[in-house]
Amino acid sequence: MTYKLILNGKTLKGETTTEAVDAATAEKIFKQYANDNGVDGEWTYDDATKTFTVTE
Rank of each mutant, 00 (worst) to 15 (best):
G41N: 02
N37V: 11
M1S: 13
F30I: 01
T25M: 12
D22I: 03
Q32A: 14
K50P: 00
K50L: 07
D22R: 03
T25I: 07
Y33F: 15
T11P: 04
N37F: 13
T11K: 09
I6E: 04
V21W: 14
T25W: 12
D40I: 07
E27V: 07
T49F: 09
Y3N: 00
A26M: 01
T16G: 05
T51N: 02
A48D: 10
A48N: 11
E42H: 10
V21R: 07
T11A: 08
N8A: 14
A34P: 01
T11D: 12
V39S: 03
T2A: 07
L5P: 01
I6S: 04
T2W: 12
W43I: 04
E42Y: 12
E27I: 13
D36R: 07
E15L: 04
T49V: 09
V39I: 10
L7R: 02
F52R: 00
K28R: 08
E42V: 14
A20N: 04
F52V: 01
T17E: 06
T49Q: 06
G9H: 14
T17K: 09
A26G: 02
Y3L: 01
Y33N: 02
L12W: 10
D47W: 10
N37L: 06
G41W: 07
L7N: 02
Y45P: 00
K10P: 11
G38V: 04
A34H: 02
W43Y: 03
G14P: 05
Y33G: 01
N8F: 06
T17I: 07
T53I: 05
L7F: 14
E56T: 05
D36A: 10
T17L: 12
L5E: 00
A20H: 03
Y33D: 02
K50V: 04
L12Q: 06
D22H: 04
K4T: 09
A23L: 09
A23Q: 11
K31G: 04
L7I: 05
E19N: 15
E56Q: 12
K31R: 11
T25S: 09
G38A: 08
T18K: 04
F30M: 03
T2N: 07
L12N: 14
A20W: 02
G41A: 02
A24Q: 10
K31I: 13
G9V: 13
N37D: 03
G41Y: 03
M1E: 09
T53D: 03
I29N: 15
T51G: 02
T51Q: 05
Y45R: 02
T16F: 10
